[in-house]
């Protein structure tokens, strides 16, 4: 599944444009909203967009892994497994970025790198653990078909437990800022736009990176096929 170069360049340009626009808005143009102004470092608010967008992509990637896993079990076509695996790897990258940027944001605004009683933080950490476990599973299973089946089953289990965990842990107190909901939307229209742009831009970036990773996966499969022919 090779994206033609023209499509790739277009995607890259669009992603870059969106992200730069969001960055400009967030870092320069927008005013820090009321509720944030009396924090210790009000300008920290501006770095929020990057974190939110990468967390969104991490969850999106996970969703794609789930779809790939389910479709593989249904159809037995290895392309779905390739999609699931590639999205998992890309997902780990963005999830790592989300956790690090979130941690930096927390340090800047609240003075601590981590909060062990915050729901969204914990969920993202669990997501990261599930991703990594999934990749560890694949690394320890040599046969192509079996690897695909086993990781598909684990992928589905992993995904099931994310909404289960959300439901379960609404009993926990959260200090995670809920800026996105329009009801508590006191971040102002400029920031909302920046948020939207950054999410869109990161999504395109994800598609791009996923395409590249899929290509590597596809090449690996071809190489294996070639190797087995040479073995004859």
């Amino acid at each position: 599944m090779r994206l033609p170069p023209s499509v790739r360049i277009a995607l890259l340009a669009a992603a870059a444009a969106l992200i730069l626009a969001a960055a400009y808005l967030g870092l320069v143009a927008v005013e820090v909203p009321e509720s944030w102004r009396d924090e210790t470092a009000p300008d920290m608010f501006r770095t929020m967009f990057f974190h939110v967008a990468s967390a969104w992509v991490a969850y999106l990637a996970f969703g794609v892994t789930f779809v790939g896993s389910a479709m593989y079990l249904r159809s037995r076509r290895l392309e779905w497994d390739a999609l699931a695996a590639s999205s998992a790897e890309v997902g780990v990258v963005f999830c790592t970025v989300a956790i690090i940027s979130g941690s930096l944001f927390a340090k800047g605004t609240w003075g601590v790198y981590w909060l062990w009683d915050d729901l969204k933080l914990m969920m993202t950490l669990v997501l990261w653990l599930v991703f990594v476990a999934y990749l560890a599973l694949r690394a320890n299973m040599p046969g192509r078909q079996r690897r695909a089946s086993l990781s598909a089953v684990f992928g589905i289990i992993g995904v099931i437990c994310i909404p289960l965990s959300f439901a379960a842990n609404r009993i926990w107190v959260t200090t995670h800022p809920t800026v996105i909901a329009s009801s508590s939307g006191d971040i102002g229209p400029g920031s909302a736009l920046a948020l939207l742009l950054s999410v869109l831009g990161f999504t395109l970036l994800y598609v791009l990176v996923l395409g590249m990773r899929l290509e590597v996966e596809h090449l690996r499969d071809e190489l294996e096929a070639l190797k087995s022919r040479v073995g004859d």
């Binding site: 090449l219 071809e222 022919r229 040479v230």
Partner: peptide, 19 residues
């Protein structure tokens, strides 16, 4: 990712030539 892709392509070319 980019370097991985190039490396695998090189390996495949070598294998094809061997074949």
């Amino acid at each position: 990712l980019h370097l991985d892709a190039r490396r695998i392509e090189a390996e495949m070319r070598a294998l094809r030539e061997a074949l």
